[in-house]
Design a protein around this nucleic acid. Structure first.
Lengths: 203, 203
DNA sequence: GTCTATACTGAGATAGAC
DNA sequence: GTCTATCTCAGTATAGAC
């Protein structure tokens, strides 16, 4: 018996489709960076056609901007959830929350890469704003001291680098990675261990 | 009177021309990142034709690899120069050396961005190797403790982010940047102040 | 050693049907 | 709301002259 081929994605409210595409785009941009990613790859990952992606978001740059704005908001959202706890534990718990985002495909890589995208004139300002919003949240709302804030952000940037480079298992850093995570973000390590990618593999 | 137009670059030994192009490529890649840069821009910055750049380096990816390998070597070379001094001052002096590289156009941005380029399959391994070589140098040759090494690298990554985002003058980080540099890399600040770029401007 | 001219390709974007 | 078909252009890479 012949099977009716599914040639078009099922109809869906545009807002839902948008979220679906943003998830897919986060994963693909995270794996291949902004310029290394094609709108077609995003479309296929989301199960829709390439022109439709462009249709919904206008341009590739606008799609990317939507992705990183969402990612930065997501980070702050996670951080905000730990505020109710005891202030002494905030660094620890925010670190764990950040590391926990490793489980969301592309979320951390996208943030890591956005830091290096001032080249694209539309994107630079958005990345700057996102970085600043996190910095200010950590300092002003979570109430860390200036020094704690700096160390926390530095630890985050190191995590980003390790994540961006898929640096687990590389000679000279094997045990360092564990210690890095442990030291930068106490308690994060147990959540991270199974989430870390292998060097060279997309994720 | 008519002037003879200079249409071709003066002859030069290939090795010298290579260095010239690598300098130009470092500046351009640093300003616009790997994928945002065209071989033609590099060529124009170096005062030669686009095909000649390709001719000398084979492909754009190979050119980029040459650029970042040179940059990583440069960093380690700077670090090596401080080894003769007293061990207690190494962190301080290596930090100053790193910050001093801000004066070499594109050098730090290129390193910062390479951290986010695992997407390009040829480049990822090179970036990993470079990062590892610095990590190992700092720990094994400069003799920092595991913890000092991690903090030093984290500080470097934060500097990279600040540099990559051209974050000077942004609200909420204005004084933080100064403190970051001061705290991550004592004594670096005085060398950096005049070298920091302005947000949004290429450099 | 270096250029001009050009072939080739990939990918973002548009038009318009269903 | 979503697709197919297609235009267009930028950008890498090649061929070959000087």
């Amino acid at each position: 018996m012949t099977v009716e081929e599914v040639t078009t994605a099922p109809r869906m409210k545009a807002a839902d489709r948008r979220e679906l595409i943003l998830d897919a785009a986060t994963a693909v941009f995270g794996a291949k960076s902004y310029v290394g990613t094609t709108t077609d790859e995003v479309a296929r990952a989301a199960g829709v056609s390439q022109p439709y992606v462009v249709r919904l978001f206008g341009t590739k740059a606008k799609l990317y901007i939507a992705v990183i704005e969402r990612a930065y908001e997501r980070v702050i959202g996670e951080f905000r959830q730990v505020l109710p706890g005891p202030p002494e534990e905030r660094v620890k718990r925010m670190g764990a929350a950040y590391a926990g985002l490793l489980s969301e495909r592309g979320m951390l890589p996208v943030i890591a890469n956005s830091t290096a995208l001032d080249g694209e004139p539309e994107i630079g300002p958005v990345a700057r704003a996102g970085f600043n919003s996190i910095w200010r949240f950590v300092r002003d709302e979570a109430g860390l001291t200036e020094e704690q804030t700096r160390d926390f952000m530095a630890g985050g940037m190191l995590i980003n680098a390790i994540v961006g480079l898929r640096l687990v298992g590389a000679y000279g850093t094997e045990q360092s990675v564990t210690e890095v995570l442990n030291a930068c973000f106490p308690d994060a390590i147990s959540r991270v261990r199974d989430l870390m990618p292998v060097a060279g593999e997309p994720w």
